[in-house]
């Protein structure tokens, strides 16, 4: 609930342009079994985390098509946060390991396109690690704020 209110507030500030501070757009792709549950846990334990993050729940990080990430950046994301189960804990045996490899490749690609690889983060956050989720999200948002807008959106003009 708190989170929803914060997000509504953010939308308001964007619209009225009162707030001059840079609020990055961050897309979080998290797996249903671990990191989403951790986010949920963070919510019920009333752990505050930045509202700049937009969570998208997926069944597994293994289903993340690199295009999801590329499209996020093209449509204005300043960072993409991916959270999955610890290696060995994947609900689908090895989806998270497949994700890790794809993301390694994609980071090289993004770097070649002039995007800082730090804008794409992959973290293993288990279902019981609400505080870890809070910490990682906070750190990531801080990092993106330091990096500033990605500017990748301009490529979407063709």
């Amino acid at each position: 609930m708190e989170q929803t209110t914060q997000q509504t507030d953010l939308v308001k500030t964007e619209q009225t342009n009162i707030d001059e501070e840079f609020h990055p757009n961050i897309v979080a792709l998290v797996c249903n079994w671990c990191t989403y549950t951790a986010a949920d846990l963070a919510g019920v334990t009333r752990l505050k985390y930045p509202a700049e993050i937009r969570i998208i729940r997926l069944m597994c990080t293994g289903m993340i098509d690199p295009r999801f990430i590329v499209e996020s950046f093209l449509r204005g994301a300043d960072g993409v946060f991916i959270g999955g189960c610890h290696p060995g804990d994947c609900h689908y045996i090895n989806g998270n390991l497949k994700a890790r490899l794809r993301i390694d490749g994609l980071k090289a690609l993004l770097q070649g396109m002039g995007i800082e690889p730090e804008r794409l983060a992959l973290h293993w956050i288990g279902a019981s690690e609400g505080t870890e989720f809070q910490k990682q999200v906070k750190d990531f948002v801080e990092e993106i704020k330091k990096l500033g807008p990605s500017g990748f959106e301009i490529l979407d003009s063709i």
Partner: peptide, 24 residues
């Protein structure tokens, strides 16, 4: 954002998709 868009739109996504598929 800018009040204009070139068509066909989304060609960058097409090229990036091919880039993702082809880079390796």
């Amino acid at each position: 954002k800018t009040g204009q868009v070139r068509m066909p739109a989304g060609l960058s996504m097409f090229h990036m998709t091919r880039m993702v598929h082809m880079s390796h």
